[in-house]
Amino acid sequence: MVLAAGITGFLVLGVGGDAGKPDAGPAGADTVPPSASPGEPRAGGEDGTAPLVPGWKTVVNPKRGIAFDVPAPWALKSTGWVSYVAENSDLEETPLVGFSAPAILKEKWCRSDDDGNGTQEDTPLAAAGSRGEPDARSTAEAARENARLWVYGSYAQPSKEKVTTGAAKPFTTRSGITGSVATATSTGVDGTGRCSYDGRATAFAFENPAGETVSWTFVGVRGVDDEVPEATVRKILSTVRLVDSTP
């Protein structure tokens, strides 16, 4: 799966990860079996994985012990699916930032061969996922860096000056998790490619009960008719909660 300037997705077999590299190279999104039937949550029950919003789906990252809800049209990837962004010029595709077990809205929203390599690439309208933040010095730093890197890597690169990152602010979810939220946007993407658009990302970072910093991030196209409304992004964010994690 490729998003705008270069979000790559792959299925991690055997072990989980947030932004590691696959052993056998990237796998196309259409090769990954769905983790749930359309309209059904990935998991249910009384363990925190039932949707908080009626009619929505629950997205679960079992490795990180994080769950959140998305509207019914969103598609859920498997819990072993990882998405990341890298510099377009980096042949090794060293991840700048990534997240696991994502949900994606309109995965084939735009299709093009903007880099002229003969391969048609799909740009989804939006995606959201969660990850660990082992290198973050604070939740505010983690939130701002996540938002900035997703917008730069997905939409603005190589022009870092086209990304504006807002200040991190306190935020508390419906379940009582308190952390820091920040939003970044791009402005003035040249649009030379058929699927070149400005974008935005909102990231929420917080500490789990073990004292580890973790995060949730939304990333999506900005300035189009079917852009995900800010109210919807905030509603999704409000459902972020802790669930039992798996080793």
Rank of each mutant, 00 (worst) to 15 (best):
L96I: 09
S180N: 02
K162H: 07
P229R: 04
A103I: 13
D90R: 12
T178V: 01
S83M: 13
P209F: 14
T192K: 09
S37Q: 14
N146L: 12
G118T: 07
W74T: 07
D198T: 00
G193P: 14
A128N: 10
R200K: 08
N208A: 06
K57S: 08
S180H: 12
A50Y: 03
A19L: 02
V233L: 10
S89I: 00
L11M: 06
R148W: 05
D122M: 08
S245E: 03
V2G: 00
S215H: 03
K162E: 05
A142N: 14
I66Y: 11
T173N: 11
D225E: 10
G6E: 05
E40G: 01
G28A: 10
P209V: 11
G166L: 10
G6M: 00
A43R: 08
A142L: 15
P71K: 11
K21R: 13
R200N: 03
G191P: 06
Q157I: 08
W150M: 05
Y152S: 13
T94P: 02
R144Q: 15
G211I: 14
F68L: 05
G188D: 07
V189E: 15
P158E: 15
R222D: 01
G191M: 08
S78V: 03
A27M: 07
A142C: 11
A168D: 14
G129P: 13
P71C: 11
W56C: 03
T119F: 04
G20I: 11
T8D: 13
W74A: 07
N61T: 07
V243P: 01
T119R: 13
A127F: 04
A210V: 01
A24C: 11
R42Y: 12
A201K: 01
G25Y: 12
Y84A: 02
P95D: 09
D135K: 14
G211T: 14
K63D: 05
R42K: 02
G55K: 03
N88C: 03
L3N: 03
G132N: 11
A19M: 02
A19R: 08
T187K: 13
W216A: 02
R194W: 07
L13Q: 13
G39P: 09
S196G: 06
P54R: 02
P247M: 13
R194C: 00
M1P: 10
A201P: 00
A50P: 01
A67Q: 08
G176W: 05
K108V: 11
S154G: 15
V228W: 06
P22Q: 09
G39I: 03
P247I: 13
N88I: 14
P102E: 15
E207L: 12
E40R: 01
T246E: 03
F204Q: 09
Y155T: 14
K162Q: 09
V224W: 14
T165P: 05
G223Q: 08
A27I: 14
S100Q: 15
P26H: 12
E107H: 13
